[in-house]
Amino acid sequence: MMLRTFALLGCLAASSMVAYAAQPVNLQTQALTSSPRLNSQSVAVVDSQTGKLVYEKNPLQTQPIASITKLMTAMVLLDAGLSLDEPITITEDEVDRLKNTSSRLSVGSTLTRREMLLLALMSSENRASASLARTYPGGKAAFIAKMNQKARSIGMRNAVFHDATGLDMRNSATAMDLVRMVKAAYQYPLIRQFSTTHEYIAHPSATRVLHYKNSNPLVREGEWDIGLSKTGYIEEAGRCLVMETTMGSQRLIVVLLAANGSAARVNDAKSIKTWLEAHPNSWLSG
């Protein structure tokens, strides 16, 4: 599908996250030539400073978002101000009985809340993310309610959350909703740091050592300037990726949803970067 440039998303002040999130999407377009063919079914690329929507492909189509969910999980956790040094032990409650996914964090594994957050953001560790919701004041129900409240507060009008991991296919949003979520999450230094950490050695027990790597190959390879990253995958959502990154001389928020094939989302990101940098006069701001 031909990708198109968009006008400004209203008067978006770079210094105001809430004002940014509240703007309606402007669907006035100006076609660019030779747009890349992308595998992802829903795409939005936005200048993170001006709010200019640079590319789109079905940006208002609601999609399951899989582990992109964990950015909201991280924001709700950090908003609560809980001790990040408190140890958390994985229990049977964290075992995935919805999709029966596995985890290297076996029941009884203990890490600090900080480490659980790191593994959730960096490696998309589902049990780590679920443990953050379980140990929230009021438990999982209160945590999920706060996720949905937070979504509304930052302008994610079409987003809904049913769990803290993204394994629940009912967790859904549009690409434009996720632009707003990335914009909000970028305001948290720990989310920026943890989501772009290359690797981490965890010690969940006295005898176990686990080596985790970032789930985004573009982060691991170290050739891109990435300020925030999150991958996601369940069968219903396909391969998903959101990033805050540099293309050309601009900081951009990139949202790629519903790609099929393990490398498709990364290939799409590379195609967008190559195409943008080949047409700088078409989109670069001053």
Results as ranks from 00 to 15, higher is better:
residue 133 A to H: 06
residue 118 L to E: 03
residue 187 Q to W: 10
residue 206 A to E: 08
residue 213 K to V: 13
residue 117 L to D: 05
residue 177 D to A: 05
residue 117 L to H: 03
residue 206 A to D: 02
residue 178 L to A: 08
residue 140 K to H: 05
residue 225 D to W: 11
residue 183 K to V: 10
residue 160 V to F: 15
residue 174 T to E: 05
residue 146 K to A: 09
residue 182 V to Y: 04
residue 163 D to W: 07
residue 219 V to L: 03
residue 120 A to D: 02
residue 138 G to R: 13
residue 222 G to A: 10
residue 160 V to A: 13
residue 175 A to T: 01
residue 157 R to I: 13
residue 139 G to W: 08
residue 147 M to N: 15
residue 198 H to F: 09
residue 122 M to G: 00
residue 215 S to N: 09
residue 194 F to K: 03
residue 227 G to I: 06
residue 219 V to F: 01
residue 166 G to E: 05
residue 195 S to W: 08
residue 208 R to I: 14
residue 193 Q to A: 12
residue 219 V to D: 02
residue 118 L to R: 00
residue 165 T to P: 06
residue 131 S to I: 03
residue 133 A to N: 02
residue 186 Y to K: 11
residue 197 T to V: 07
residue 225 D to N: 14
residue 149 Q to D: 15
residue 214 N to I: 01
residue 147 M to D: 12
residue 154 I to M: 00
residue 190 L to F: 09
residue 154 I to A: 03
residue 189 P to C: 01
residue 206 A to H: 10
residue 191 I to H: 01
residue 145 A to G: 13
residue 219 V to M: 03
residue 161 F to V: 06
residue 170 R to M: 11
residue 191 I to T: 09
residue 220 R to S: 13
residue 214 N to D: 01
residue 210 L to M: 13
residue 167 L to Q: 10
residue 194 F to S: 02
residue 215 S to G: 10
residue 187 Q to R: 11
